[in-house]
Design a protein around this nucleic acid. Structure first.
Length: 462
RNA sequence: GGCGGGUUGGCGGAGAGGUUACGCAGCGGAUUGCAAAUCCGUGAAGACCGGUUCGAUUCCGGUACCCGCCUCCA
């Protein structure tokens, strides 16, 4: 029995799919204007574990996972416009498409490196404009939206439950007084479904003239087309709870009052770096690719993400990465060449079933490792997307490095044989300082690469 | 101003109204030429003030501090 914290009800609830033959999950994906930063990776990994858990429980072919690409956005437009200003003669639409194609390629590469399975569908907003226009027209027809000065706006006063997800009333929000008031809005909280595009901006023809969709409508339209008017789980970062998810609910429930839209809402908490909010001004802003390029294996980053429950803020620290790497190296040594057990350990499955308690699941993995249950460890770790064969390349060294280390260890062995302990210890300390863990045993010497292995430090040792 | 979340041992980080979380580090031991690795053992906690209870770190209320959202944002 899976239990999930439902943001909508603020309670942990037993999860019962609408249709166990087709469990449906929607996660808000990235706006594709740049590399995914570390914070973007957290929901991807967290809800990838949810995807894996659902596949395990209901069968891989009985879970549908949709994650969108937002490729209509002013930042994308600006990036394309900048390219055009610098002399690129191609039309804006082509430049935008090139930019978003490139960014999606990066996104896939980076998320693949984190061990995230590809969703069942990854719709791009620009390919579903027709569905959005249809939904907007329907909302106007049903009296939930209105046209004003080329814009189409959602009428929040027409939907009594507006604000229910985030626990605010329209009046509360207006009292907050930071709402941008446009003269054509009936209510300051009304939000844009469609906005006009000038000639320098991408646009599509619509009953309201050439324009482009507002941000929120794409998720409503694509979720409806791919998952139906009711589905099981909608997830994303807590920062999306308001206004994005609130607006999605308003649009979807008004357009399809026969359905309930998402039954369970899940939100992951934000990410900190060394205890502080990640921001460009603090100089602690980095992308997943930055970390990968610095030599942090994707699997290590993934393990750090999963070390904190998704509902709490997660602090990225170099120390955590080091500990995760050390544990993974030990575990990979343990499971090398081992066939996974037919099913994951009950303790791991129970932890994950309890509101995706990944930290608890990792503790259970430690217990399996401690008990020497390599087959169980490998099968259980797979549920978390860890210790999988295709993610283990980072653990292996090249034969060149391996030969170098073997040669140094042979020199040390010779020195020990000659009882030249000063030289033997100097070699040992030098090898260890490079990040190689040396393991002496009665049957011989073995070694493995430890955290922070730096092959350059092996140079100069002899 | 409005809404929401958090505060656990040296550090990270879970569960549970009463019984060991777990990991890292530390300490003791085995082992070692000395170490490392490994194995065995081990001390240490729940912001503050009240309340409920036989009993609360776990439930309720308040205080303090921290954080997020309310504007593009995972």
């Amino acid at each position: 029995m899976i239990r999930l914290t439902n943001t909508r009800t603020r309670q942990k609830e037993p999860f019962t799919p609408l249709d166990p033959q087709n469990v449906r999950l929607y996660v808000c994906g990235p706006t594709v204007y740049d590399r995914a930063h570390l914070g973007n990776g957290r929901p991807v990994v967290v809800f990838d574990v949810l995807f894996r858990l659902l596949r395990h429980v209901y069968g891989a072919e009985h879970v549908t996972y949709v994650r969108n690409f937002t490729d209509v956005d002013d930042k994308i437009n600006a990036a394309a416009q900048a390219r055009r200003d610098s002399g690129d003669p191609r039309p804006l639409e082509a430049l935008i498409r090139e930019r978003t194609d490139e960014t999606i390629g990066w996104y896939h590469a980076d998320m693949d490196a984190l061990g995230a399975l590809r969703p069942s569908h990854e719709p791009r907003a620009t390919e579903w404009i027709g569905a959005m226009v249809a939904m907007i027209a329907d909302l106007i027809a049903k009296g939930h939206a209105y046209e004003a000065e080329g814009h189409v706006l959602f009428d929040v006063r027409s939907y009594a439950d507006y604000g229910a997800l985030s626990g605010r009333s329209v009046d509360d929000m207006i009292a907050g007084a930071r709402v941008e008031v446009a003269p054509y809005k009936r209510d300051p909280m009304d939000f844009v479904l469609w906005k006009p595009s000038s000639d320098e901006l991408p646009g599509w023809d619509s009953p309201w003239g050439r324009g482009r969709p507002g941000w929120h409508i794409e998720c409503s339209a694509m979720a409806y087309e791919l998952l139906g008017e009711s589905f099981d789980i909608h997830a994303g970062g807590i920062d999306l709870q308001f206004p994005h998810h609130e607006n999605e609910i308003a649009q979807s429930c008004c357009a399809h009052p026969e359905g309930g839209f998402a039954r369970v809402w899940m939100h992951n908490e934000m990410l900190l770096v060394e205890g502080r909010k990640m921001s460009k001004s603090l100089g602690n802003f980095f992308t997943v690719r930055d970390l990968l390029d610095q030599g942090y294996p994707g699997e290590v980053i993934r393990m750090v993400y999963l070390g904190t429950h998704y509902g709490k803020p997660m602090d990225w620290t170099a120390e955590k990465a080091e500990q995760a790497e050390a544990a993974l190296r030990r575990w990979r040594g343990l499971v090398a060449g081992i066939e996974p057990a037919p099913s994951p350990a009950a303790a791991v499955l129970e932890a994950l079933s309890d509101d995706l308690n990944t930290a608890g699941a990792i503790a259970a993995l430690h217990a399996l490792a401690g008990a020497g249950d390599a087959a169980g460890l490998k099968a259980s770790a797979a549920l978390l997307g860890l210790l999988e064969d295709d993610m283990g390349d980072w653990i292996n060294s090249t034969s060149e490095i391996s030969d170098r280390i073997d040669a140094l260890l042979q020199a040390r062995a010779d020195a020990r044989q000659a009882r030249d302990f000063a030289r033997a210890d100097a070699l040992r300390d030098g090898i260890a300082a490079a990040g190689v863990v040396i393991m002496d045993s009665p049957t011989g010497v073995t070694w493995r690469l430890g955290p922070g292995f730096d092959p350059a430090k092996l140079e100069g040792l002899a």
